[in-house]
Amino acid sequence: MKRIILGLSTLCLLVVTSCKEDASKKIEEANVTAAAERDANASKFPQIEFDKVEHDFGEIEKGTSVETTFNYKNTGDAPLVITDIKSSCGCTVPQDWSKEPLAPGESGKFSVKYNGSGANNITKTITVTANTEKGTEVVKIKAFVKPDPATVVN
């Protein structure tokens, strides 16, 4: 039994000591530089800044389509990529945004069309999904939808 333990101990000692090759010699300087650059850029995010975060259409007739444009600027340190823009319901349609990266300092825009459905005060949210640190930004539209005069009962 002592021979088996002694033999296994010797084998383990040989395995551990035979792998003493200097690991620092295996590291390539180009990889270290690339990793340092990657890590430095990992903390840089684009930031999206809107010219307005809410648009009020005021009073509109029921069924009247209205449209507005939201302008935005990349005020961050990395390219901004908007991957999706969705509204809170099908009556509001965001459209015409660029899916190409927007460099720091550059501006872009998208339009939002509302079909005039609903009644009285309405508020709709538009969620912008982008590669910002937060991941999503929200803008809103609102209006007072007056009833259709043809359907008003006296």
Rank of each mutant, 00 (worst) to 15 (best):
N74F: 14
T129Y: 05
V153A: 07
D56I: 05
E37R: 13
K25M: 07
P94Y: 06
F70Y: 12
V152N: 01
L6F: 09
L80Q: 03
K134C: 00
V15H: 02
K44N: 11
C19H: 10
P101I: 14
A40K: 15
C19P: 04
N31Q: 15
D96K: 15
D51K: 01
A35D: 01
C19F: 14
M1D: 08
L13M: 05
A23E: 08
V152K: 07
T151I: 08
T129M: 11
D39H: 10
A103N: 14
I126Y: 01
Q47E: 11
K52G: 02
A78D: 06
I82K: 09
P79V: 13
K52Y: 03
G7H: 03
G105S: 11
G135I: 06
S111M: 15
A34W: 01
S98N: 13
E28K: 15
K142T: 08
E100C: 02
D96W: 10
N71A: 05
A35N: 11
T17D: 00
E54G: 00
V53M: 10
D96C: 07
S24P: 07
A42G: 00
E61N: 07
V145Q: 01
G58N: 05
K99Q: 14
G135C: 02
I4F: 07
S107A: 15
G7E: 03
I82C: 10
I5G: 00
A35R: 15
K134V: 09
K146I: 00
P79Q: 08
K44F: 12
Q47M: 08
K44H: 08
F57S: 05
T68M: 10
D96Y: 09
S117Q: 14
I126K: 01
N121M: 09
A143N: 03
S18L: 06
G116C: 11
T127E: 03
P94N: 04
T125L: 05
M1W: 06
T132F: 11
Y114H: 14
T125M: 03
D56A: 05
V112M: 13
T17W: 02
S18A: 15
T69D: 02
V15D: 00
V145R: 02
E29C: 10
K25A: 15
K140Q: 11
I126S: 10
L11Y: 05
N41L: 13
D77H: 09
I85P: 13
T151C: 03
E100F: 12
K142C: 04
P147V: 13
V81R: 12
E100H: 01
K2Q: 10
E49P: 00
V15I: 00
G90D: 12
K124N: 05
G76E: 12
K109F: 13
V66D: 02
K146M: 03
E100A: 14
E67Y: 06
E28P: 05
G76N: 02
S88P: 03
S107R: 13
N120A: 15
D22R: 15
P147R: 13
K26L: 14
K146H: 02
D84W: 06
L11T: 03
K99W: 07
E61T: 07
V138Y: 05
S107L: 12
E37H: 12
K109C: 11
N71T: 06
N154H: 07
I85A: 04
T33C: 00
K109D: 05
S107P: 09
P46K: 13
C89W: 13
T75A: 01
T127P: 03
E49H: 04
